Simulated scan of single mutants.
Amino acid sequence: MYIHKQTEFGGDQIHGYVDIGSGEIENVIASQALVLMVVAINESWKIPIAYFLINSMTGTERANLIRESLVRLHAIGVRVISLTCDGPSQNFAMIRELGAKLDIFDMRLFFSPS
């Protein structure tokens, strides 16, 4: 989702720069937030599990974040049965990078996170 480009000083840190959780903050003001959520299919709850302040992100970078999230969810016993995202080209690239195919003549609607 798009966010306002701005920085704020909060205590001992400046917030608003690109930050994908690697410990290194780029000297670029973020214009988007990538939010990962887990939604229950047999209950009525949804929980954001991660958010990343980004300016842009390749499909490969998105796929790496999804893989890491799936591995961590599996480690705590969460069974993920579907992945939902909107349709920008980066998400199609992410889906291809994960191993799924959305080609109408050669469709593969699943992938393994490993």
Rank of each mutant, 00 (worst) to 15 (best):
V78W: 06
S89H: 09
S69E: 03
N64W: 05
N27K: 15
M107I: 12
A33R: 14
S89Q: 10
M57P: 00
F105C: 10
H74Y: 12
L98S: 03
T84C: 15
T84N: 14
E24L: 13
L34E: 11
G59C: 01
G99R: 04
L70V: 03
L70C: 01
F92M: 09
I54F: 02
G99K: 05
N64Q: 11
I41L: 15
V71F: 06
Q32W: 10
I104T: 06
N27C: 13
V39F: 14
L83F: 12
L102E: 06
M107Y: 13
E97I: 04
L36R: 07
V28P: 02
E26W: 11
I81E: 13
G77T: 06
I54V: 08
M37D: 12
M37Y: 14
I66P: 02
H74W: 12
A100G: 04
G77M: 08
G77N: 08
I54W: 01
A63P: 03
Q90F: 09
I66D: 01
T58A: 04
D106H: 09
E97Y: 05
P48R: 11
M57Y: 04
V80A: 02
M57N: 04
N91I: 03
K46M: 11
A75E: 13
I41Q: 14
V38C: 05
L70Y: 00
F105A: 10
N55R: 08
A33Q: 13
A100Q: 06
V39T: 15
T60E: 09
L83C: 03
R108W: 09
E43M: 11
N42E: 15
C85A: 09
R108C: 13
R108Y: 09
V38Y: 03
R62K: 12
T84F: 14
I41G: 08
W45N: 01
E68A: 05
P48W: 11
G59V: 00
R72V: 04
T58N: 01
Q90I: 07
N55S: 09
G59F: 00
L83V: 09
Q32E: 15
A30Q: 08
I81M: 12
R79H: 13
V71D: 02
L83H: 03
D86Y: 11
D86R: 07
Q32R: 12
W45S: 02
V28T: 14
V28K: 13
A93I: 06
T58L: 05
A40R: 08
I76Q: 06
R72G: 00
I29S: 02
C85N: 05
I41K: 15
V78S: 01
L34H: 08
R62G: 02
C85W: 10
S69W: 04
I54H: 04
S69V: 01
R108S: 12
G77A: 07
L83M: 08
M57G: 02
C85D: 00
F52P: 05
R108P: 06
T60P: 00
R67V: 04
D103G: 01
P48E: 11
A75G: 09
R108H: 12
I49S: 02
L53A: 03
Q90V: 10
I104L: 08
D103T: 06
V39G: 12
A100P: 05
R72K: 15
K101S: 14
M94C: 07
V35D: 14
F105P: 00
S31N: 15
L53R: 03
N55W: 09
F92G: 00
E26T: 06
V78C: 09
